Simulated assay, not measured.
Amino acid sequence: MGYWFSKIPSKRWAEKFFLLYSPVWMTIFSLIVATETYKLFYDVEFFILGLVVSLPCVLYPLAFPCDADKGKPLRDRYWVKANIWLALFGFVGNYFWTHYFFVLLEATYKFPVTFMLNEVPVFLYFVTHAYFVSYHAATTPILRRWWTAFGGGKSWIKTLGSIVIVFAMAYFTAFMEAWTLEKVPYYSIKNRESMYLIGSTFYMIYFVISFPMFARIDETPNEPRWSLSRTALEALGSAMIVFILCDFWRLIIGGLSASPSLSIPFLGAHGIK
């Protein structure tokens, strides 16, 4: 019989906490957009917003650990590993992959901020963390429900179903994020229809890899728990897979209105300079 939440207490608690916290930061974001309060924001205000939505993912479980985590060193707590994995994956995404959006998808943004890192506002690194925590907290139980429905065995139905579920969740996540960003005027999208349909397909590459890879953290009850070093290496390895696939897209498909020989700022026509 399949089940949704992890059998490992530390992971089960963290997954439920992340899911319960998600509506909180989403409500904060929605109110800021609906009231257009963001029009009053500059460097400090945007940076505080990034901290407000992301830090509770770390501070709450640190201050109020669940019973399963009490007495455990931080390195053994699932929420620590989850945050490390997503922070590293999100950092690579913002620092490198954002430039694919700039060039290939002709989607840019011009926030009234000067606090930037590789042409990306620093506050977005923190906002991305909140987004990714919610995405992965929501999709991991869905994958687990499907995987455990077949017990510990393997079958072509289980494998095919996993592929379909991952691709469906990845595209839905990418499309919904692209669509909701339409309400923020700081984002400039040259061709919105193409961005929603084709751009979402490009963006879903992130999640086709990250959803199943992230779900593997401390997933099997009878196996040793992941170390922090393994967590970091797995996150960076997953990011490298996405990096390769994004660049294959650049070489084979190209941009929405340009040839496949497009050059990304940190890439030459044939690879990294």
Rank of each mutant, 00 (worst) to 15 (best):
Y95I: 11
I241T: 15
N94H: 00
G152L: 09
C57A: 10
G161K: 15
L19Y: 07
N191W: 06
T98R: 03
K11G: 00
N118Q: 09
T173E: 09
L88K: 01
P65S: 01
L20W: 07
N118L: 01
P9C: 05
I163P: 13
D69Q: 00
A232P: 02
T114E: 02
T180H: 13
G199S: 13
T139I: 11
Y135R: 11
A170D: 08
T128W: 09
R77Q: 04
L20N: 11
I264W: 05
S200M: 12
P56D: 06
L256M: 08
K39R: 12
L105E: 05
R216L: 14
E223G: 15
G271S: 14
F175A: 03
K70R: 05
L236F: 06
A138M: 14
H99L: 02
F202D: 05
D67F: 03
I209V: 15
R192W: 15
Y100V: 02
I189T: 07
C66D: 03
I142C: 06
V127G: 10
N83H: 00
G153A: 14
V208I: 15
F132Q: 10
L267V: 07
I217R: 11
G93L: 02
V164G: 09
T231A: 08
L19T: 05
A63N: 04
E36F: 06
F111A: 03
T108D: 06
T114Y: 01
L31R: 10
L117T: 04
D67L: 02
I165D: 13
P224Q: 13
Y60I: 11
I163V: 15
N118P: 02
S238A: 15
S210K: 13
L251S: 07
K183N: 09
H129Y: 05
F248A: 14
K72F: 00
L143Q: 13
F123Q: 03
I189E: 04
K81W: 00
F5N: 08
S238G: 14
A235E: 01
I209Q: 12
A239E: 06
I28F: 15
P56Q: 07
Y78C: 00
Y131D: 12
A107Y: 06
I264Y: 05
